[in-house]
Design a protein around this nucleic acid. Structure first.
Lengths: 233, 233
DNA sequence: GCCGTTTGTAATAGTTGTGTAAAAATGCAA
DNA sequence: TTGCATTTTTACACAACTATTACAAACGGC
């Protein structure tokens, strides 16, 4: 769960896929490649992407079907169609199916990368940055906007709270010892004597736990530290 | 004020301009036509548009210059470049100057209209409809006429107040840090030491909040800056 | 005089420190 | 093993401190 944009590239021609993947990763994006429609749909089911790049000519199904079902799941997912079908009918059909952009092969690599960048830049204006929304149990945390929705209503988060939550979310399931927390959140030596972390844990439990005395998300690992469980794994 | 999108069309060839205007109006948009760069800049100065459609080949100046200065005024104004210069260098240059899309003449009218519609649809996700009035809670703000209706009655807004409100409205929900405000409203270095923003916030809260000490719209994010919530999202 | 900025001081939110209670682990004898 | 005393660790309310913000009032330019 890093800050990189994750892109799903749906393309059956292996060498084109490799070239695009290479160049997109070069730009700092994280690319998942799906060579068939089936795999594309699976990937869309299993996780969130910041952008869908779609070849229309797939062996098993029409790209437009993928386009439609992706739109249905997430009506603001940016979609870039990339195809050899360049005539007006196809372009219009693609745009009508909800694509954000439509590039015809052969296309200029520079233009392609610019359009990708432009789409992703714009998308941050209307959808949260990848990884900035986190859900567990009845809670929804928006790290970017420093607020959270809990079963008790919406609350504002402070900077420290956000920093701690960020660490916990990124290491869900792992035990975080005091020293590690002190280093990464407080920039203190790992052996500093302070109970500041305890206090924050208590606060987080008050915010997010149904019964703070018997936490199900922010767990104590006696003698070690704390462990965050998101309730899924 | 109607809900129509207003488009500024910058195009020197009269018959093309007429054709596009006709078709765009057919679609329900309100079109302003500027045949020269100078007139385009004047129009951009005098009022807000939802979209700028730009021919690059103008008699008096380069379309890219217009693109740049329009971006400077409003960094989220959608721009569609429309030109006969179709080779890669020009396309890339256009996109690099901040254009949202780039269509090469001759283009398909249907595709053009679809792309316009797509851009405008997306834009409502991240910017308030220009020229329309903005509502939050019991307040109604008209940036165009620099007036606002609050629960205490109608007030006139000063230029600075309008500039700040514009930023807050267009970034509703986001945390705006001091530096960002200083840059975009005051054109100052982001690390300038001043409390001018505080004073305006205090004023806005006095205008628009039922209880300025416990704001529900203009919120403080301690250590960061401010966040405007329109009460919907 | 109107607006916008600077300045000074009060108020406040957020973080950390501290004390006490509770809980868990440990030691050890039976 | 079991039971009980002892020690260690954690929970968390509250106090103390500090950096940041609120805002009135004075100031200054167009």
């Amino acid at each position: 769960m890093d800050g990189k944009y994750s892109i799903l590239l749906v393309e059956d021609e292996e060498h084109i896929a490799q070239g695009l993947t290479f160049n997109l990763e070069q730009e700092g994006y994280s690319v998942t490649h799906a060579p068939t429609g089936r795999e594309a749909l699976n990937a869309l089911e299993s996780r969130d992407f910041a952008l869908l790049i779609l070849d229309l000519m797939l062996p098993d199904m029409s790209g437009l079907d993928i386009c439609r079902s992706a739109r249905k799941r997430d009506d603001r997912l940016p979609i870039l169609i990339l195809t050899a079908l360049g005539d007006e009918t196809h372009r219009v059909a693609g745009l009508q199916h909800g694509a954000d952009d439509y590039l015809t092969k052969p296309f200029s690599l520079a233009e392609f990368l610019l359009r990708v960048r432009r789409i992703l830049e714009r998308s941050t204006w209307y959808r949260p940055l990848p990884g900035s929304i986190y859900r567990f149990g009845p809670n929804t945390v928006n790290l970017q906007e420093q607020k959270a929705m809990t079963s008790q209503g919406e609350i504002e988060l402070t900077e420290m709270e956000v920093r701690i939550l960020r660490i916990f979310f990124s290491k869900a399931g792992e035990v975080l010892d005091r020293g590690e927390l002190l280093e990464s959140v407080w920039n203190l030596a790992p052996d500093t004597e302070t109970r500041a972390p305890d206090n924050f844990i208590a606060r987080l439990r008050k915010y997010f736990e149904a019964d703070p005395a018997h936490p199900e998300f922010f767990l104590t690992v006696r003698g070690k530290g704390y462990r965050f469980e998101n309730g899924e794994n």
